[in-house]
Design a protein around this nucleic acid. Structure first.
Length: 424
RNA sequence: GGAAGAGUGUCCGAGUGGUUUAAGGAACUGGUCUUGAAAACCAGCGACGGGGAAACCCGUCCGUGAGUUCGAAUCUCACCUCUUCCGCCA
């Protein structure tokens, strides 16, 4: 949610930011509604002030038994009543319309975000590690998993349809191992607090992080009108909704391993084979709540925490900064981490770390009290640390030995009961 | 799912139709005192919005929304959330 004051003060900068996101200018329309609304508010408030004053005088007149004075005032206030009621109703209406417009406008890109209309404009920042040398033709993860007899898309299809998978045996355990390893790293090394949050949330929570009102089609909804979380960014970030935090509490760093549910509307035909794009997948999420001054450094720190997972797993990756046209709704700046998949012969996104400024905090009304001064909105950041399913895919493809076996990375062996390989 | 109770500012909490301008306390900030700290005392201190160069003025907000009234934290209705009890249940 944008700050109206900013749009008033910097309409050109606002529209310029939207333009970088391929969106038409909005400031003129917004400011026209805003000034109409404020003019209405001023008129309404003058009427209210007079009503309040007269009502008080009625009380005094009655106390003095001056009935003539009292009834004269009552007649006056009675006349104001209609005007005030109509004014209040219009104010509510206009306010709601303005809020609805603001609610669908995405955040503005930071000044150091590169220009670009789509993913072709993203810029590679660094590459770490190297692709494993293989003297055989690497297979894709679904072939490996199915050959092991431990990855079953057919069984999942029979009970749930497409874009679901059943993992079995050592692959089911590998998913659990990857998640545990990630959580232990983030809680142990990077100081995140582990959270076990709800997977079902209300409208307000989805609005807070920006999934609603625009992206309802991407979400699953229960018959009781809860939404299934598409990422634990939603419950983790909403942990501070409607809260007044103390500055000394910040930064707050939380992490959770949860399933994520996505309708994948509009993704027909993309990544239809394998585990890359599922209706249900597992992810370890990182969320930080910071002061405005802390958020830039925190963004780098969070991205480094996500990268550390890949380093410890010995996986080759590159880190991209997304261009303005390719960023998500709430982000002011996003780093994507892409892991090398030898079977696909491509880098694929495995983490996305976004700084959101105070955009989500406004929607959630999450504030903090500076040591000295008036309340301010917090800054929020979220990042995958990492997508567990895609990490499993990466392990399979990078650690295949050409004979159908998968080596288990050293860092995961303790979580696999000491096993060094999957398959015989 | 059923019944009863509750929801007031950063927190606790008083307040059943008109000087409530939301009492009082805590926390916090500044000061006095003190070798220093604590305690005590004094002073300041809600959020959001509108107007104004500023001092300051005005409005809204007592879970949310709608109503009654000249006037609502206070009365009415609906909804939400929490607590307790009952039911069901891993």
């Amino acid at each position: 949610m944008h700050d109206l004051k900013f749009i008033r003060d910097e309409p050109a900068a606002f529209d310029q930011g939207l333009k970088r996101r391929n969106i038409e200018p909005e400031s003129a329309k917004i400011l026209r509604r805003d000034s109409e609304l404020r003019a209405l508010q001023t008129r309404l408030q003058q009427a209210q002030a007079r009503r309040n004053e007269a009502s008080k005088l009625i009380g005094h007149a009655k106390a003095k038994k001056d009935e003539a004075q009292a009834s004269a005032l009552m007649a006056e206030v009675s006349g104001l009543k209609r005007e005030i009621q109509e004014g209040e109703e219009r104010e509510r209406l206009d306010q709601a319309v303005l809020q609805a417009i603001l609610a669908t406008i995405p955040n503005l890109p930071a000044s150091d975000v590169p220009e670009g209309r789509d993913e072709t404009g993203n810029v590679e920042l660094r590459r770490v590690g190297q692709a494993p040398g293989m003297n055989f033709s690497p297979k894709e993860h679904f072939d490996l998993g199915e050959q092991l007899g431990l990855m079953d898309f057919e069984a999942a299809g029979r009970m749930s349809g497409s874009r679901f998978v059943v993992l079995k045996g050592q692959l089911a355990r590998l998913e659990r191992a990857i998640a545990s390893f990630m959580l232990d790293l983030h809680t142990g090394t990077f100081g995140y607090q582990e959270i076990a949050p709800p997977y079902l949330v209300r409208d307000d929570a989805m609005f807070g992080t920006g999934q609603l009102p625009k992206f309802a089609d991407d979400l699953f909804r229960t018959t009781l009108a809860h939404w299934l979380i598409p990422t634990s960014e939603v419950p983790l970030t909403n942990l501070v909704r409607e809260q007044m935090l103390e500055e000394a509490q910040l930064p707050i760093r939380v992490t959770a391993h949860t399933p994520c549910f996505r309708a994948e509307a509009g993704a027909a035909g993309k990544d239809t084979r394998g585990m890359i794009r599922m209706h249900q997948f597992s992810k370890v999420e990182l969320v930080s709540i910071t002061t405005p001054e802390q958020s830039r450094d925190e963004h780098e720190r969070m991205t480094a925490a996500a990268e550390e997972v890949l380093k410890r797993l010995g996986l080759h990756f590159r880190t991209m900064v997304l261009c303005a046209g390719d960023m998500g709704f709430a982000a002011i700046k996003t780093y994507d981490i892409e892991v090398w998949l030898p079977g696909q012969k491509a880098f694929r996104e495995i983490s996305s770390c976004s700084a959101c400024g105070d955009f989500q905090a406004r929607r959630m009304n999450a504030r903090y009290r500076p040591a000295d001064g008036r309340p301010r909105f917090v800054h929020t950041l979220n990042g995958s640390g990492l997508a567990v399913g895609r990490t499993l895919v990466a392990v399979l493809e990078n650690y295949q030995d050409g004979n159908g076996r998968i080596a288990i990375p050293d860092a995961l062996q303790p979580y696999m009961g000491g096993a060094t390989h999957i398959g015989s």
